[in-house]
Protein backbone atom coordinates (compact mmCIF):
# COMPACT_ATOMS: atom_id res chain seq x y z
CA UNK A 1 0.00 0.00 0.00
CA UNK A 2 1.21 3.46 -0.87
CA UNK A 3 2.34 5.45 2.11
CA UNK A 4 0.15 8.49 2.62
CA UNK A 5 2.99 10.88 1.87
CA UNK A 6 3.62 9.39 -1.58
CA UNK A 7 0.12 9.15 -2.85
CA UNK A 8 -0.37 10.96 -6.14
CA UNK A 9 -3.23 13.37 -6.61
CA UNK A 10 -4.11 11.73 -9.88
CA UNK A 11 -2.92 8.74 -11.88
CA UNK A 12 -3.14 7.59 -15.47
CA UNK A 13 -4.64 4.47 -16.99
CA UNK A 14 -3.55 3.54 -20.50
CA UNK A 15 -5.90 1.13 -22.22
CA UNK A 16 -5.42 -0.77 -25.47
CA UNK A 17 -8.79 -0.40 -27.14
CA UNK A 18 -10.35 -2.03 -30.17
CA UNK A 19 -13.83 -1.18 -31.43
CA UNK A 20 -14.73 -4.57 -32.84
CA UNK A 21 -13.18 -7.81 -34.13
CA UNK A 22 -10.87 -7.17 -37.08
CA UNK A 23 -10.63 -3.45 -36.32
CA UNK A 24 -7.28 -1.84 -35.51
CA UNK A 25 -6.34 -1.40 -31.89
CA UNK A 26 -5.38 1.96 -30.41
CA UNK A 27 -4.31 3.36 -27.06
CA UNK A 28 -6.42 5.67 -25.01
CA UNK A 29 -5.30 7.34 -21.80
CA UNK A 30 -7.47 8.31 -18.85
CA UNK A 31 -6.67 10.38 -15.80
CA UNK A 32 -8.33 9.58 -12.50
CA UNK A 33 -8.30 11.12 -9.07
CA UNK A 34 -6.41 8.97 -6.65
CA UNK A 35 -8.47 7.31 -3.92
CA UNK A 36 -7.25 4.66 -1.53
CA UNK A 37 -8.37 1.05 -1.97
CA UNK A 38 -9.27 1.17 -5.65
CA UNK A 39 -8.94 -1.90 -7.83
CA UNK A 40 -8.89 -2.10 -11.62
CA UNK A 41 -12.63 -2.89 -11.73
CA UNK A 42 -13.51 0.29 -9.85
CA UNK A 43 -11.15 2.20 -12.15
CA UNK A 44 -13.02 0.87 -15.18
CA UNK A 45 -16.35 1.72 -13.52
CA UNK A 46 -15.17 5.28 -13.00
CA UNK A 47 -14.01 5.48 -16.60
CA UNK A 48 -17.41 4.21 -17.77
CA UNK A 49 -19.24 6.84 -15.73
CA UNK A 50 -16.94 9.64 -16.93
CA UNK A 51 -16.22 8.52 -20.50
CA UNK A 52 -13.65 11.27 -21.02
CA UNK A 53 -9.99 10.79 -21.91
CA UNK A 54 -7.06 12.40 -20.14
CA UNK A 55 -7.00 14.95 -22.95
CA UNK A 56 -10.59 15.93 -22.21
CA UNK A 57 -12.03 14.18 -25.28
CA UNK A 58 -15.44 12.53 -24.95
CA UNK A 59 -15.16 8.82 -25.62
CA UNK A 60 -17.14 5.62 -25.16
CA UNK A 61 -16.97 3.61 -21.93
CA UNK A 62 -14.36 0.87 -22.10
CA UNK A 63 -15.90 -2.56 -22.66
CA UNK A 64 -14.75 -5.31 -20.31
CA UNK A 65 -15.90 -8.56 -18.81
CA UNK A 66 -16.49 -9.11 -15.10
CA UNK A 67 -18.69 -11.09 -12.75
CA UNK A 68 -18.06 -11.99 -9.13
CA UNK A 69 -15.28 -9.47 -8.37
CA UNK A 70 -13.95 -11.98 -5.82
CA UNK A 71 -11.57 -13.90 -8.06
CA UNK A 72 -13.73 -17.01 -8.28
CA UNK A 73 -15.57 -16.56 -11.58
CA UNK A 74 -12.59 -15.93 -13.87
CA UNK A 75 -14.39 -13.39 -16.07
CA UNK A 76 -12.31 -10.25 -15.56
CA UNK A 77 -8.95 -11.60 -16.74
CA UNK A 78 -6.76 -9.14 -18.67
CA UNK A 79 -3.14 -8.11 -19.04
CA UNK A 80 -2.32 -5.53 -16.39
CA UNK A 81 1.12 -3.92 -16.45
CA UNK A 82 2.18 -6.80 -18.71
CA UNK A 83 1.00 -9.50 -16.35
CA UNK A 84 -2.07 -11.62 -17.02
CA UNK A 85 -4.38 -11.66 -14.01
CA UNK A 86 -7.90 -10.89 -12.77
CA UNK A 87 -8.62 -7.20 -12.65
CA UNK A 88 -10.76 -7.50 -9.50
CA UNK A 89 -7.79 -8.50 -7.37
CA UNK A 90 -5.43 -6.00 -9.06
CA UNK A 91 -5.15 -3.22 -6.50
CA UNK A 92 -4.33 0.27 -7.69
CA UNK A 93 -2.16 1.01 -4.66
CA UNK A 94 0.07 -1.95 -5.53
CA UNK A 95 0.10 -1.17 -9.25
CA UNK A 96 1.16 2.41 -8.60
CA UNK A 97 4.17 1.39 -6.54
CA UNK A 98 6.29 1.63 -9.70
CA UNK A 99 4.86 4.78 -11.23
CA UNK A 100 1.81 6.85 -11.91
CA UNK A 101 0.47 4.82 -14.81
CA UNK A 102 -1.40 1.54 -15.14
CA UNK A 103 -1.51 -0.24 -18.46
CA UNK A 104 -4.45 -2.50 -19.42
CA UNK A 105 -4.49 -4.77 -22.45
CA UNK A 106 -6.85 -7.55 -23.53
CA UNK A 107 -5.51 -11.10 -23.40
CA UNK A 108 -3.51 -11.73 -26.56
CA UNK A 109 -4.40 -15.39 -27.13
CA UNK A 110 -8.11 -14.87 -27.71
CA UNK A 111 -10.02 -12.84 -30.28
CA UNK A 112 -10.97 -9.42 -29.00
CA UNK A 113 -14.72 -8.80 -28.96
CA UNK A 114 -14.27 -5.20 -27.96
CA UNK A 115 -11.62 -3.36 -25.93
CA UNK A 116 -10.68 -5.61 -23.01
CA UNK A 117 -13.43 -8.16 -23.65
CA UNK A 118 -12.19 -11.35 -25.30
CA UNK A 119 -13.92 -14.51 -26.53
CA UNK A 120 -12.68 -17.53 -24.58
CA UNK A 121 -15.09 -20.07 -26.09
CA UNK A 122 -12.08 -22.11 -27.22
CA UNK A 123 -11.37 -22.96 -23.58
CA UNK A 124 -14.91 -24.21 -22.98
CA UNK A 125 -14.69 -26.17 -26.22
CA UNK A 126 -11.56 -27.88 -24.89
CA UNK A 127 -13.59 -29.13 -21.92
CA UNK A 128 -15.92 -30.82 -24.39
CA UNK A 129 -13.05 -32.35 -26.29
CA UNK A 130 -11.55 -33.98 -23.18
CA UNK A 131 -14.97 -35.04 -21.83
CA UNK A 132 -14.51 -33.13 -18.58
CA UNK A 133 -17.45 -34.59 -16.68
CA UNK A 134 -18.47 -37.63 -14.63
CA UNK A 135 -20.59 -39.88 -16.87
CA UNK A 136 -23.20 -40.79 -14.26
CA UNK A 137 -26.12 -43.08 -15.11
CA UNK A 138 -28.64 -40.35 -14.40
CA UNK A 139 -30.05 -37.97 -11.85
CA UNK A 140 -32.42 -40.28 -10.01
CA UNK A 141 -31.62 -41.11 -6.41
CA UNK A 142 -29.05 -43.91 -6.50
CA UNK A 143 -27.55 -43.27 -3.08
CA UNK A 144 -24.22 -41.60 -2.29
CA UNK A 145 -21.15 -41.62 -4.48
CA UNK A 146 -18.14 -43.83 -3.73
CA UNK A 147 -16.18 -43.15 -0.58
CA UNK A 148 -12.99 -41.19 -1.13
CA UNK A 149 -9.94 -40.77 1.01
CA UNK A 150 -8.98 -37.43 2.46
CA UNK A 151 -5.76 -37.66 0.52
CA UNK A 152 -7.59 -38.02 -2.80
CA UNK A 153 -9.91 -35.14 -1.96
CA UNK A 154 -6.96 -32.96 -1.06
CA UNK A 155 -5.37 -33.78 -4.41
CA UNK A 156 -8.59 -33.19 -6.37
CA UNK A 157 -9.82 -30.03 -4.67
CA UNK A 158 -7.14 -27.64 -5.96
CA UNK A 159 -7.70 -28.94 -9.51
CA UNK A 160 -11.43 -28.36 -9.20
CA UNK A 161 -10.84 -24.69 -8.37
CA UNK A 162 -9.91 -23.97 -12.02
CA UNK A 163 -12.19 -21.15 -13.17
CA UNK A 164 -11.29 -21.33 -16.90
CA UNK A 165 -9.90 -17.81 -16.69
CA UNK A 166 -7.23 -18.36 -19.34
CA UNK A 167 -4.15 -17.07 -17.52
CA UNK A 168 -2.34 -20.38 -18.11
CA UNK A 169 -2.84 -20.33 -21.87
CA UNK A 170 -2.11 -16.61 -22.16
CA UNK A 171 1.34 -17.32 -20.72
CA UNK A 172 1.87 -20.48 -22.78
CA UNK A 173 4.31 -20.22 -25.73
CA UNK A 174 2.63 -23.19 -27.44
CA UNK A 175 -0.88 -21.75 -27.36
CA UNK A 176 -1.44 -19.37 -30.22
CA UNK A 177 -4.36 -17.16 -31.03
CA UNK A 178 -7.05 -18.47 -33.37
CA UNK A 179 -9.30 -15.83 -34.86
CA UNK A 180 -11.66 -16.95 -37.58
CA UNK A 181 -14.17 -14.99 -39.59
CA UNK A 182 -17.10 -16.42 -41.54
CA UNK A 183 -16.38 -17.23 -45.18
CA UNK A 184 -18.58 -15.92 -47.93
CA UNK A 185 -21.60 -18.17 -48.31
CA UNK A 186 -20.92 -20.04 -45.07
CA UNK A 187 -23.97 -20.61 -42.84
CA UNK A 188 -23.62 -19.84 -39.11
CA UNK A 189 -23.74 -23.58 -38.41
CA UNK A 190 -21.00 -24.31 -40.95
CA UNK A 191 -18.89 -21.53 -39.46
CA UNK A 192 -19.41 -22.93 -35.97
CA UNK A 193 -18.39 -26.41 -37.14
CA UNK A 194 -15.25 -25.04 -38.79
CA UNK A 195 -14.41 -23.15 -35.61
CA UNK A 196 -14.80 -26.23 -33.42
CA UNK A 197 -12.77 -28.29 -35.86
CA UNK A 198 -9.97 -25.70 -35.81
CA UNK A 199 -10.04 -25.47 -32.02
CA UNK A 200 -9.86 -29.24 -31.77
CA UNK A 201 -6.79 -29.42 -34.01
CA UNK A 202 -4.91 -26.87 -31.93
CA UNK A 203 -3.44 -27.08 -28.45
CA UNK A 204 -6.00 -27.72 -25.69
CA UNK A 205 -3.88 -25.91 -23.09
CA UNK A 206 -2.97 -26.57 -19.48
CA UNK A 207 -6.41 -25.92 -17.96
CA UNK A 208 -8.08 -28.72 -19.94
CA UNK A 209 -5.19 -31.15 -19.32
CA UNK A 210 -5.49 -30.48 -15.61
CA UNK A 211 -9.24 -31.18 -15.79
CA UNK A 212 -8.41 -34.60 -17.25
CA UNK A 213 -6.21 -35.16 -14.20
CA UNK A 214 -9.16 -34.18 -12.00
CA UNK A 215 -11.73 -36.45 -13.63
CA UNK A 216 -9.32 -39.37 -13.95
CA UNK A 217 -8.75 -39.15 -10.19
CA UNK A 218 -12.46 -39.50 -9.41
CA UNK A 219 -13.50 -43.11 -8.66
CA UNK A 220 -16.35 -42.92 -11.21
CA UNK A 221 -14.50 -40.65 -13.62
CA UNK A 222 -11.69 -43.19 -13.73
CA UNK A 223 -13.92 -45.64 -15.54
CA UNK A 224 -13.63 -43.47 -18.66
CA UNK A 225 -10.04 -42.38 -18.10
CA UNK A 226 -8.98 -43.94 -21.42
CA UNK A 227 -11.37 -41.79 -23.46
CA UNK A 228 -10.00 -38.59 -21.96
CA UNK A 229 -6.43 -39.74 -22.49
CA UNK A 230 -7.29 -40.62 -26.10
CA UNK A 231 -8.52 -37.08 -26.63
CA UNK A 232 -5.17 -35.81 -25.38
CA UNK A 233 -3.31 -38.10 -27.78
CA UNK A 234 -4.99 -36.49 -30.78
CA UNK A 235 -3.75 -33.48 -32.69
CA UNK A 236 -3.53 -30.49 -30.33
CA UNK A 237 -3.13 -32.82 -27.36
CA UNK A 238 -0.62 -32.99 -24.56
CA UNK A 239 2.34 -33.60 -26.89
CA UNK A 240 2.17 -29.92 -27.90
CA UNK A 241 3.20 -28.86 -24.38
CA UNK A 242 6.75 -27.54 -24.54
CA UNK A 243 7.26 -27.69 -20.80
CA UNK A 244 7.88 -23.96 -20.49
CA UNK A 245 6.13 -24.05 -17.09
CA UNK A 246 4.77 -20.52 -17.51
CA UNK A 247 1.26 -21.78 -16.85
CA UNK A 248 1.84 -22.75 -13.26
CA UNK A 249 3.63 -19.47 -12.57
CA UNK A 250 0.65 -17.31 -13.58
CA UNK A 251 -2.25 -19.44 -12.29
CA UNK A 252 -4.17 -17.22 -9.84
CA UNK A 253 -5.47 -20.27 -8.00
CA UNK A 254 -1.99 -21.80 -7.70
CA UNK A 255 -3.23 -25.01 -9.31
CA UNK A 256 -0.33 -27.47 -9.70
CA UNK A 257 -0.71 -27.44 -13.50
CA UNK A 258 2.73 -28.83 -14.30
CA UNK A 259 2.13 -31.69 -11.90
CA UNK A 260 -1.13 -32.44 -13.74
CA UNK A 261 0.65 -32.26 -17.08
CA UNK A 262 3.40 -34.59 -15.82
CA UNK A 263 0.94 -37.09 -14.44
CA UNK A 264 -1.29 -37.05 -17.51
CA UNK A 265 1.76 -37.21 -19.80
CA UNK A 266 2.79 -40.49 -18.22
CA UNK A 267 -0.79 -41.78 -18.28
CA UNK A 268 -1.13 -40.94 -21.98
CA UNK A 269 2.07 -42.83 -22.78
CA UNK A 270 0.95 -45.81 -20.77
CA UNK A 271 -2.52 -45.67 -22.33
CA UNK A 272 -1.03 -45.68 -25.83
CA UNK A 273 1.30 -48.56 -25.04
CA UNK A 274 -1.50 -50.51 -23.42
CA UNK A 275 -3.66 -50.03 -26.48
CA UNK A 276 -0.77 -51.10 -28.67
CA UNK A 277 -0.29 -54.30 -26.70
CA UNK A 278 -4.04 -54.88 -26.45
CA UNK A 279 -4.39 -54.91 -30.24
CA UNK A 280 -5.91 -58.14 -31.46
CA UNK A 281 -3.11 -60.45 -32.57
CA UNK A 282 -2.63 -60.49 -36.35
CA UNK A 283 -3.04 -63.79 -38.10
CA UNK A 284 0.21 -65.09 -39.50
Amino acid sequence: MIAHANKPKTFFVKILRQDAPGKPSYWEKFELDYEPELNVISVLQKIAAKATTAGGQKTTPVCWDCGCLEEVCGACTMVINNKVRQSCSALVDKLLEDGREIELKPMSKFPVVRDLYVDRSRMFNALKKVKAWIPVDGYYDLGPGPKQSRGDQEMAYPLSECMTCGCCVEACPQYSKIELTPNVGETPEEFEDRKVDTFNRNFVGAAAISQVALFNLNPTGKMNAGERLDALTEEGGIQVCGNAQNCVAVCPKKIPLTMSIGRIGRAVTFNTLRKWFDRPAKKH
Binding site: W133, I134, P144, K147, R150, Q153, Y157, S160, F215
Partner: peptide, 22 residues
Amino acid sequence: PKVIDLMDRLGVTFNRTQEGFL
Protein backbone atom coordinates in the same frame (compact mmCIF):
# COMPACT_ATOMS: atom_id res chain seq x y z
CA PRO B 1 -30.04 -35.84 1.55
CA LYS B 2 -30.76 -37.04 -1.99
CA VAL B 3 -29.55 -33.77 -3.48
CA ILE B 4 -26.23 -34.06 -1.68
CA ASP B 5 -25.88 -37.72 -2.69
CA LEU B 6 -26.43 -36.70 -6.30
CA MET B 7 -23.87 -33.89 -6.14
CA ASP B 8 -21.44 -36.34 -4.58
CA ARG B 9 -21.97 -38.72 -7.50
CA LEU B 10 -21.43 -35.86 -9.93
CA GLY B 11 -17.90 -35.50 -8.60
CA VAL B 12 -18.09 -32.50 -6.28
CA THR B 13 -14.85 -32.44 -4.27
CA PHE B 14 -16.57 -32.39 -0.87
CA ASN B 15 -14.29 -32.50 2.16
CA ARG B 16 -13.96 -35.99 3.60
CA THR B 17 -13.72 -37.57 7.01
CA GLN B 18 -10.76 -39.81 7.79
CA GLU B 19 -12.92 -42.79 6.87
CA GLY B 20 -13.83 -41.27 3.52
CA PHE B 21 -17.39 -40.10 4.20
CA LEU B 22 -18.55 -36.55 3.49
